[in-house]
Amino acid sequence: MSAGGELIFLFCGFIAVVTAVLTVSLRTPLRAAVALLGHILSLAGLYLTLHAHLLAAIQLMVYAGAVVVLFIFVIMLIGPGAEPKTKTKWLTLRVGAASLMAMVGATLAFGVSSIDRPYVDIDQCRGAAAECGQFGGVDALSDAIFRQSAVPFELVSVLLLVAIIAAVAVARGHSPAEKKAIEARRAAQGGAAGGEGA
């Protein structure tokens, strides 16, 4: 791994950890969302160090461009009511579970840190790009996705479609108050219609 690569790793890794901590700890959802954006950008940087160029781009487009925007959109939709009330329900248990999880993460990190594989220097293709493609590049990854994994890809498209429909189906509808109002209006109309019929 090149020295530049190491530097990028250290920088992006640090940012990733800090933004992750901020994401989960900030009280205001909007700020948390911004921290999440930073987290995603830093991860895209990490992907670059791993020769996953296209993936880094997708990360930026899908996550930063779509998901985070969606989050912010919802935060705006809901408004300040989204502020959670301070309740201490199961506080001990939550703290216990969280610290247990932190220990698990730490143990895992310690355990896996010693795993090592010989570093493979990816010998860039000497010939024309069209012939062999570049590791993690558009050609090679597209080939992997659209040829080798065409069926899962199509299934993912179906999944997304289903998700869209599900989102619409779930988010449609009215709050109890709205429902009441609508029913009242309908009843008024129905009564009028009945009156006309008679």
């Binding site: 199961w90 939550r94 579970a97």
Partner: peptide, 20 residues
């Protein structure tokens, strides 16, 4: 939701213990 998550964490911790 928290209860389910908590149970999951307990299982995960057990698994981690087994791995060490």
């Amino acid at each position: 939701v928290f209860a389910y998550a908590g149970l999951m964490v307990a299982g995960l911790a057990g698994l981690a213990w087994w791995f060490t």
